[in-house]
Amino acid sequence: MFSTYPGQAVIDHPVSAPIEHRFDPYVDNGGTLLSIAGNDFCVVAADTRQSEGYSINSRYVPKSVKLSDKTVISMGGCYADCLTLTKRIQQSMEWYHHAHGKVMSTAAVAQMLSIMLYQKRFFPFYSWCILGGLDEEGKGAVYTYDPVGSYERETCRCAGSASSLIQPFLDNQINFKNQESRQRTLTKDEVLRITKDSFTSATERDIYTGDYLEIFVITNTGVEVQKIDLKKD
């Protein structure tokens, strides 16, 4: 740390870092997810790569799950936490169905998810959630969360490892930031094109994004799923 004789190089950082003797229960399994709400549809998309450090565990581990005919959840972060949270949501929805004799609405699932995340405020689920679906009026709805349950409804959001690459692009192309004059609502095909472009671009630069893109399109008639190839390098 300090020089003891003239001319000796001053080392201003510790030579050996202390070893942490504590188990870290979290792991970042990477991956990117995105959801865009349209007038009468909603798109939820995510890549299917699962990573651990520089290794790819598997090229196909879906991040999105259909919760009902009107709601799809997508999660990134610690995959074990995400999967556990998904199971919990599904079980709560089952109880809701039993208690009320109807399927939970997107808004109700959204509120419930926030509470579920906050219930683990001091040992959080390490998961970035995006909930996409149709609201009670049939309009596209996107709800986004942080790992401890803060949430809001938006028109579009990208989360996960390539979110910093894709979100600015969406701000410009979906919300028309800095191009006020062109403001309009987008069609399903336009949204799908932007989604695909987002992921092919992100795959180029983000090592945690790639392999396949799974797109859920939620409309009045139900949920359709498409699987598209991404680069596998």
């Binding site: 229960p25 979290y26 792991v27 399994n29 699962q50 651990e52 290794s55 565990n57 598997s58 090229r59 196909y60 581990v61 610690c78 995959y79 074990a80 999967l83 556990t84």
Partner: peptide, 25 residues
């Protein structure tokens, strides 16, 4: 399928754990 100490599950057509994930996979 594989599961590690943090409870991360994944399925794949080929799996190699530990050093094998670098050398054999």
């Amino acid at each position: 399928g594989a599961i590690d100490l943090k409870g991360t599950p994944y399925q794949a057509p080929s799996i190699a754990t530990g050093f094998g994930s670098h050398l054999a996979q």
